[in-house]
Design a protein around this nucleic acid. Structure first.
Lengths: 119, 119
DNA sequence: TGCTCATTTCAACGTTCATCGAAATAATTG
DNA sequence: CAATTATTTCGATGAACGTTGAAATGAGCA
């Protein structure tokens, strides 16, 4: 993933309603949900929802297809995973065991919690 | 992680220069880097860099400590991992194998959330 | 065809954002 | 102390953002 794509995806997710929408789709799975269902679930005005869907779609985070009168939106997991990968790329100079939990590292080294500096 | 924290973190990362700064710190590791080093590496004006550091810090993504005349900034991996976990929480109705690569499928379960203080 | 449902487009509003230059603060050195 | 280095604060500017209301499109049904 390139930087401009990552920024676009992060910007798309950096908004209350949009984050709700995206997570709902992520949790819904590959088959997606009709726009109306999302609008009802999150209590969003239909035009506002379209605005947010456009941004998510522009960032490559969701896909759309038409089904009769309904538009079905679905999360694009390929983009999600590319984004997560971009953020953690080469972390800790490649010694990922220092910062990522065991589940995210390729190997499974013992994860030692270190003390954080003052915020 | 709560939604407002996630939005704050995503907004902090959704900017060209800031994403560069953050990734540099993530790659640098737990010991962090002096502000001046970051400014030189990314060719940023010192006041602009302070502005961006403030946003990253406000979102809990980085920590600071003073070392003589230098301010040492470091990535907060706990927040990074909480954010990644938040995005993928309950994905595909819990059947994560459908959307996440093998290395990420052992994510922290959603049931393990705890309440955190507002910064 | 005319009608309804689902969703999108458009124009406008006030708000927040990133960057800049100049000045200020903090820690060290002579 | 004054000078130097490292970083932060302040005020201003133009651009982008999220929401709203009204109108328009597209698909299915009588």
């Amino acid at each position: 993933m390139e930087k401009s794509n990552a920024v676009a995806a992060l910007a798309a997710l950096a908004q209350d309603k949009r984050l709700d929408v995206y997570r709902l789709l992520v949790q819904a799975g590959p088959d997606g949900l009709p726009a109306g269902h999302v609008a009802a679930a999150l209590k969003l005005a239909p035009n506002t929802l379209t605005f947010h869907f456009d941004r998510l779609r522009g960032a490559g985070l969701v896909s759309v297809r038409r089904d009769g009168r309904s538009m079905i939106y679905a999360a694009r997991y390929d983009t999600m995973n590319a984004l997560l990968g971009y953020l953690t790329e080469n972390c800790c100079q490649g010694r990922a065991g220092r910062c990522l939990p065991a589940a995210r590292t390729k190997r499974t080294p013992a994860t030692a919690r270190r003390k954080e500096p003052v915020t």
